[in-house]
Simulated assay, not measured.
Amino acid sequence: MTPAPAVLRFSKRRPPFARMATLLLSLGVSAASLPARAQAPAPKSAPAPKVAPAASTKVRMAMTAAFVSESGMPVYGRIATYLSKKLGAEVSFITGQSYGDVDKMLDAGSVEVAFVCGLPYVLKHDANKDSVSLIAAPVMKAARYANKPKYFSDLIVRKDSKFKKLEDLRGATFVYNEETSNSGYNLPRYKMLKLGLTQGFFGKVLRSGSHEESIRLVATGKADASYVDSLVLDFDRETSNGWASEVKVIDSLGPAGIPPVVVSGKVSAELRQRIKQALLTMNKDPDGRRILDDALVDRFAEVDDSNYNDVRQQYQAAVKAGFTTIK
């Protein structure tokens, strides 16, 4: 015969609390084991709203003025990879753009950071101070740069040339890289202005498109002389690349403000500061140090607009004198 289930009976005269205690004891639960306010459990909190992950930052980097020659271009890809690691962002290096192309891309924000020539920087800054911001500039290792963010424009001729100075080149063939180049055009134009060589001094003037091509044209006898970026010439001499060993320097202009690193005015202040900090501390990081060493750079340094006053003053002097075209 199946036993009847146990039934708990309560006296009607016992208070509710006493009846509850009796029930708990019968179930083997002591009052001490109950949490405070067990009879009124706390309401469940609403689940936290889900937040969509932020879109990954993408940074596009361009270059129109290098601190190495064309043979050293891979260094910029390595800098992009280094910045990717430091920023936690995808940094891509865009190549093949002209001075004018990169200028427009900075305006549009389709390039965030760029290595540019000093003269295009000055022209852009003076037209609209908010269009770009200086964040750093390289300081080269070689003693001639005196541990400062400066460089030179070197006048080159063939190794066997009899030309000894600029004034000897009357009637000769002169080649330059681009009209908006500081070392290839602005500095030599100012030198010619100061010497009064403004009335058709050269016999022929050629445009090469790059310092490397100017060096080649001089080395192979297709041009007599050219003012080229000292950084490009130094790199090819140091690494035994290109035609640098076939030319000699007969004049140097400068020191002038070295081509800087700028960011577009459309870049946020937070990202601008992160890019700047990554470059300024690059020499203290083992991976960064190796990249700089291969590019003959000591470090990146902070610079302000005054570093380019020499570039600005020489350009303005030529414009004021009406001598804007080397001839």
Rank of each mutant, 00 (worst) to 15 (best):
Y185G: 04
T198S: 04
E213S: 09
K320T: 14
K150Q: 08
V157Y: 12
V139I: 08
Q199N: 15
A225M: 01
P16M: 01
S110W: 07
P74D: 03
P5Y: 12
R272I: 03
K159L: 11
P15Y: 00
D234N: 08
L134K: 03
F115G: 10
V7C: 06
V205C: 00
Y76W: 03
V311I: 12
E179W: 06
D154R: 01
V75L: 08
V311K: 00
K276M: 07
M282R: 03
T180Y: 07
A66M: 06
R158P: 04
V29P: 05
K222P: 01
L217R: 01
S214K: 02
G184C: 09
D154T: 05
I250W: 09
F202R: 08
L25F: 10
F10T: 14
A40H: 10
T325K: 15
V29A: 12
D285R: 07
G196P: 04
A142K: 14
I94M: 07
S45G: 12
S131T: 14
A256L: 12
I79F: 03
R290H: 05
P149G: 05
E167L: 07
D168K: 11
I326L: 15
M61I: 09
A46S: 07
V249Y: 11
A89F: 09
G322R: 02
P41A: 08
A108Q: 12
K266V: 03
D154V: 07
D103I: 06
N128R: 09
